[in-house]
Computed example of a mutant assay.
Amino acid sequence: MTDVRAHALDGTRGVIAAREWPHPRPRYLALLVHGYGEHIGRYAALAAVLTGHGAAVYGPDHVGHGRSAGERVVIEDFEDVVTDVHTVAALARAAHPGLPVVLVGHSMGGLVAARYAQRHGAELTALVLSGPVIGAWETPGQLLAHAERHGEVPDIPVSPSALSRDPEVGPSYAADPLVWHGPMKRPTLEAFVRTLKAVDEGGTVAPLPVLWLHGADDRLVPLPGSRTGVRRLAGDGPLTERVYPGARHEVFLETNKAEVYADLIHFLDGVLTP
């Protein structure tokens, strides 16, 4: 299924561009939440796996990202991003009422998805977190400390080589005009710090089933700090952990992506079975 539909929605801070990968007779809905500096179009392969499994798939470009409105990569409040994702969820539910909803968040999208589950968990059937920015993530504090000492945020863009061992992923990312290749912005770093704290203090999402996927060689969001946040978020609810030796940050685009997709589908089969 290669059909993709574009939607323009009223977001909290301007027009939000969203994509839909439709299914003629879906049995569940999948909401995809992308990471920092990128856009939802980079998730076409994951969407194809999910539509092949029976999902209608939806996902927005966040404010300041991709084709959505806003200054590039400026997010002043992640609560607004959660609200925008909820708007996309409402679009999906209106088109397909009564279906189970699965939320999949990667990296910064994992932070958004975690907060979404804390706010709207009763509307979800399962939560999937890939390399999630939750728990002990030191990068925002380090960059803000540098800015305090030197007057500006250092220009340290995301390294394409840190994304995947697949030799095609990095160059594709580097050449993508919808990807931000510059430095992080102070308002976004400050929002990261606030929202990491909000998720830590926001309670568990139990009994919501959680699947956590992470590359053991993830240098952008190191495994140990993320583990702290994931386990706190899951609480005493069902948590499935999959850590992939040698894999880097984007496990859905890794050389072992077939294994990752198989783990995802196995998890979904378990939570979607009546």
Rank of each mutant, 00 (worst) to 15 (best):
G170Q: 11
E38I: 11
I265K: 14
R219H: 14
A191V: 04
A126N: 09
L196I: 05
G237T: 04
V153L: 04
I265H: 12
D10S: 12
G170H: 12
D217L: 07
A247Q: 06
V221L: 07
A136K: 14
D84R: 13
L91H: 03
D61I: 00
S107A: 05
V210Q: 03
P187A: 04
D80Y: 14
V158I: 14
A191H: 07
D10N: 11
V63D: 10
L178A: 08
E71C: 04
D3F: 14
H120K: 10
E20G: 05
L264G: 01
T255Y: 01
D218E: 06
E20K: 04
V271G: 09
G64P: 05
E79D: 15
P177I: 10
L208E: 08
P160N: 09
E20V: 05
V63H: 15
T139Y: 15
S172A: 15
V169T: 11
L143N: 01
D84V: 04
M108W: 08
R149A: 12
V128A: 08
R72S: 11
G54A: 06
G109V: 01
A247M: 09
P97E: 02
Y58P: 01
A89S: 14
V57W: 00
A117K: 07
S130G: 11
V179L: 02
L32S: 00
G64A: 02
K185W: 06
E254R: 01
G14Q: 04
L32M: 01
Y58H: 02
D269E: 15
V73D: 08
T273S: 15
P60R: 03
V153I: 12
W21T: 00
P177F: 09
G59S: 00
H65M: 04
P274L: 14
P209I: 05
F78W: 13
V85R: 10
G64S: 08
R248M: 11
V33K: 07
H86T: 08
G105Y: 03
V260G: 03
V63C: 11
E148P: 00
V85P: 05
E123M: 08
D217H: 12
G141I: 08
L143I: 04
A48Y: 03
L163D: 05
G151K: 01
V112I: 15
E241P: 08
H150R: 05
E201C: 04
A145L: 00
T87C: 10
G52A: 02
H23P: 07
E38T: 11
D77F: 12
G52K: 03
R5I: 10
A114P: 05
L127H: 10
A47L: 01
N256D: 14
R42L: 10
P160T: 06
G225N: 13
P224E: 13
K197D: 15
L144W: 00
A216C: 07
A94M: 01
L208P: 03
V82K: 06
P222M: 07
T228L: 15
D263N: 12
A122T: 15
V243R: 12
L233K: 13
R5A: 10
L211D: 09
R165P: 02
P171C: 07
G105I: 00
G215M: 05
R19G: 02
A89M: 14
A122N: 14
V199S: 07
L220F: 13
